[in-house]
């Protein structure tokens, strides 16, 4: 079965941010495919390269990156939600005249059309952290 996941939960604020990650791992282990993970609302903070959790805590952004590399996942961060909250790639940093960018490796900024596409392409769309 083809899944897509929508993450609206901010990492470290909501348990559902971690639950989404565990759900993604589980469905891949069971042999399903994950078409796209779409980070929306406060969930966009998952794409911050600057997150620096203590060593003995789960590193949610890094774990998504690792999972994405293992399974060639499409991690899309909603551009409108991200730019508003200060998660920018180099393009957006340039556009808004910011001194640095902080979108983590393995993530890309894109629009809500990617969510519409995920809905169209997936058998199941699961929301975490609404």
């Amino acid at each position: 079965m083809i899944f897509s996941i929508v993450v609206q939960a901010a990492p470290y604020s909501c348990q559902s941010a971690e639950t989404a990650l565990r759900f993604a791992r589980s469905l891949l282990e069971k042999g399903h495919s994950l078409h796209r993970v779409f980070f929306y609302g406060d969930g966009i903070h998952t794409g911050s390269a600057l997150a620096s959790p203590p060593q003995d805590e789960i590193n949610i952004p890094a774990d998504w990156n690792t999972l994405a590399a293992e399974h060639d996942l499409d991690l899309v961060v909603c551009i409108a939600a991200a730019v508003r909250r200060g998660v920018l790639d180099t393009n957006e940093a340039g556009r808004y005249g910011k001194s640095g960018s902080n979108l983590a490796e393995g993530f890309e900024l894109s629009g809500l059309g990617q969510l519409a596409d995920a809905i169209a392409q997936s058998d199941r769309v699961i929301t975490f952290g609404a």
């Binding site: 929306y40 809500l112 969510l115 519409a116 169209a120």
Partner: peptide, 10 residues
């Protein structure tokens, strides 16, 4: 999201 899906005629 509703408006975007609307644009895609869903």
């Amino acid at each position: 999201v509703a408006l975007t899906c609307g644009v895609f005629e869903m």
